[in-house]
């Protein structure tokens, strides 16, 4: 399994790397590109703290070999910040005290944004299902669920409901 050149568009920037066969996307994002919002909670696909969006799909960057996503478009929380597309969610997190230590929060933001992108009006069950891959050890999840419900309420309010 050889190293090869891989091209990615990360948060709108074209990037090129020479990577080994099993180099994870997480390592490239965190250590090569310094997108430190991509947290490393387990490197086992078990905590969701490294969640990113690859070509519109929610993925765990720790379990994603870079070579497998050659040519893809990758968005981290830094990318979502740039577009300001998650400002409402961020404000809801602040208002609902939906983070304590904050280590799971970037992965949560990305996972929730992915949920809202595919389902702008999720039920409570759909919200908890959307959070199923992300572990939070501090909050007991209820404030996070309330924050998502808050965004949903705001969005449906804005649409005239």
């Amino acid at each position: 399994m050889a190293s090869r050149i891989v091209s990615l568009k990360v948060n709108g920037q074209n990037e090129e790397f020479i990577v080994g066969a099993l180099t994870s996307l997480q390592d490239i994002l965190r250590d090569t590109l310094n997108y430190t919002s991509v947290k490393e909670g387990c490197r086992q696909g078990g905590c969701g703290s490294c969640s990113v969006i690859i070509d519109g799909e929610l993925r765990l960057s720790c379990l994603t070999p870079v070579q497998e996503v050659d040519g893809s478009e990758v968005t981290t929380l830094e990318g979502l910040n740039q577009s300001n597309s998650i400002a409402a969610l961020q404000q809801q997190f602040i208002d609902k005290y939906a983070a304590q230590c904050g280590f799971c929060t970037p992965g949560m933001m990305v996972a929730i944004q992915a949920l809202l992108d595919r389902n702008p009006n999720p039920s409570r069950d759909e919200i908890t299902e959307g959070l199923a891959g992300n572990i939070c050890r501090c909050t007991g999840y209820l404030p996070i669920i309330k924050a998502v419900e808050g965004v949903v309420a705001e969005m449906s309010g804005a649409s005239g409901d």
């Binding site: 387990c42 086992q44 078990g46 905590c47 069950d125 919200i127 908890t128 299902e129 959070l131 199923a132 572990i135 050890r137 007991g140 999840y141 209820l142 996070i144 669920i145």
Partner: peptide
């Protein structure tokens, strides 16, 4: 040795407080 085998309640398991 991982979160798949160290089981904790998920968001869906959390009742009202």
């Amino acid at each position: 040795g991982d979160f798949q085998s160290y089981v904790m309640p998920g968001a869906a398991d959390m009742p009202s407080v």
